[in-house]
Simulated assay, not measured.
Amino acid sequence: MATWEDVRRIALALPETGEKLSWGTPQWHVRGKGFVWDRPLRKSDLDALGIAEQEGPILGVRVADEGVKRALIADDPDVYFTIPHFDGYPAVLLRLDRIGVPELEEVVTEAWLLKAPKRLAQAYLAEH
Rank of each mutant, 00 (worst) to 15 (best):
G56M: 10
V30E: 02
G56V: 11
A64W: 06
G50H: 00
S44T: 09
R42G: 04
I73R: 00
G24Y: 02
P77I: 01
V61M: 13
P40D: 13
D45R: 01
A71K: 13
G32N: 13
E66D: 11
A48P: 14
D38Q: 05
K43A: 15
R31N: 14
Q27W: 08
I73L: 03
R39Q: 03
V30D: 06
I58D: 02
V36Q: 08
D75T: 07
L46D: 08
V79T: 09
V79I: 15
G50K: 01
D76Q: 11
H29D: 14
K33D: 13
T25M: 00
G56Y: 06
Y80S: 09
I83D: 00
D78C: 02
G24E: 09
A74C: 08
D65N: 15
I51S: 13
V36A: 14
G56N: 11
R62S: 11
G24N: 02
L59E: 07
S44G: 04
P26F: 00
G67L: 12
Q54R: 10
S44H: 10
D65W: 09
E66H: 03
V30W: 10
P77A: 10
R39M: 03
K43D: 15
G24F: 01
Q54K: 00
V36K: 12
G34Y: 08
F35C: 04
V63I: 09
R70W: 09
G50T: 04
I73C: 01
R70N: 14
A48I: 02
T25I: 05
E66W: 03
V36I: 11
G67N: 11
I73V: 14
K33L: 12
A48M: 04
A64C: 09
Y80D: 08
P26G: 07
A52E: 15
G67V: 04
V68K: 11
D38Y: 06
L72D: 04
V63L: 12
R42D: 13
F81K: 00
K33Y: 06
G34E: 06
D76L: 09
W28K: 07
Q27R: 14
G60M: 05
I51T: 07
K43Q: 15
G67S: 13
T25L: 00
W37D: 04
D76N: 14
F35T: 01
V63W: 07
T82Q: 00
F81Q: 09
L59S: 02
G60N: 12
A74H: 01
D65G: 12
P57M: 03
V68F: 09
L49A: 02
L46K: 00
R70D: 15
V30A: 12
F81P: 01
T82H: 00
D76R: 14
W23V: 03
P77M: 05
G34P: 13
V63F: 11
L49M: 12
H29I: 06
G32R: 08
D45A: 06
A74T: 05
V36D: 07
L72M: 12
D78T: 11
G56T: 09
A71F: 01
